[in-house]
Amino acid sequence: MSYVALTYWDLVLASLLLLINGAISFGFRLNLERSLAISAVRMVLQLALIAVLLKFIFASDAFWPTLLFAMLMLAATGYEVASHQSRRISGWRGYALAGGPPFAAGLVTALFAVTAIIGAEPWYAPRFFLPILGMIVGNALAGAGLVLDTIADGANRERQVIETRLALGQSRFVAMSDIMRRSVRAGMLPIMSMMATAGIVAIPGMMTGQILAGAEPGDAAKYQIMILFLIAGATGLAVLSAACGSVLLMTDERHRLRLERLQSNGSP
């Protein structure tokens, strides 16, 4: 068995499946046809663009294009997480809090992977570094987003508890420790269930991709195991730093609760 490259005609064939969704939307008057078409077109254009960019970066095999691409990912990360929160810290700090922890955690773990585990040469070889970084950041982002949501909602709901504890002379981290613990837990749950169900409920996307691309299932599984460990480590780091960062930004240096720094995102 070897790798079978897809032709453009194959993709057109696959896209016919969207017609089913279109028919459902039309039949049940869901009014989803427009957004369905837009998301499908977006998906195709974005992936095509990424393919062109990556092709260029892989061909150059140089440091700066790799860094630039990673920076683009950072900006997208912050924007994605922040814009999906129901309550977020207003201003640029909100975006930094949303994007910083998952990206920093992803960067540290991806560097560990390419240097210590894979031993890529050079270490920034974009063919290894960028996909791994992307996969790790994408997952750490989900965990950090859960943390930010849980902690902002919790602080808003339990404002009186936090202020009572602050009034008793507790520091901001002690006063918010219950909420922090709850949010870190919420942020860790997805990766834990992902590890527990990997291979049972579904074969993970990356492993599927490698198998389709002709890799031995054993090799594909090894890569998948490594990636899941990396994701777990990065999620832990991202979740913890997102929780600490949230507490720091929702309080001030005098250990006062400053919930006016939160803004509600209007309904989408």
Binding site: E158, G169, Q170
Partner: peptide, 20 residues
């Protein structure tokens, strides 16, 4: 003074007590 140290000496007791 650091906030927690100040509130350790100057204690506000709210009208509606809450518990955690």
């Amino acid at each position: 003074m650091p906030g927690p140290a100040w509130r350790g000496a100057v204690r506000f007791v709210a009208a509606e007590p809450v518990w955690w």
